[in-house]
Amino acid sequence: MIGIVNYGAGNIFSLTSALSRLGLSYGMINTEQDFEQYTHIIIPGVGHAGAAMEKLNQTGLVESIRQLKKPVLGICVGMQLLTSHSQEGDAELMNIIPLETKLFDKELGIKIPHMGWNNIEIKNNLLFEGVENQTQFYFVHSYFIEYNAIFEIATANYGLQYAAAIQKDNFYGVQFHPEKSGAAGEQLLLNFSKLN
């Protein structure tokens, strides 16, 4: 069963709807004890990374998250929270994956936010099992996680190459919204639910 970290960063109705469509049961994580009930953990998030981190800090769940050995999936800002630091609000984040979250540079001739469907280059990873390379996913974000060959499991190109998906041990993060990315996004959520 999937546990969703409930820290008040944005709407999760679309995410829980996607899980329901897939027949995956889920519940909310509000306290440290709640983690025990679930086999897989999702950290959702939209909006401002600094503000989201502040809310997450207020729940007192950060240390428990850092200690998790179960599969964890951060989505969008939830992924960014796994990194060390974000330029958005100059915020110290959970520092589970030693990467930096940066603002897109409009000097690269791109529009910000990066909004819409973008193809991704997929590395061989169970999270993307059954998803064809170069499949398009739905992105909405103004900040991105820098490219790093060690943690990268998928990259996107928008002005520059950056992290579409990252992994370190049991911690996974996707910058796009699988719950809004059609059949491919649903496949990814299903794959996540099967990770050991």
Partner: peptide
């Protein structure tokens, strides 16, 4: 909106 969000997998 709720009914649409339950079923739709695009934004």
């Amino acid at each position: 909106v709720k009914s649409v969000a339950r079923q739709l997998n695009i934004p």
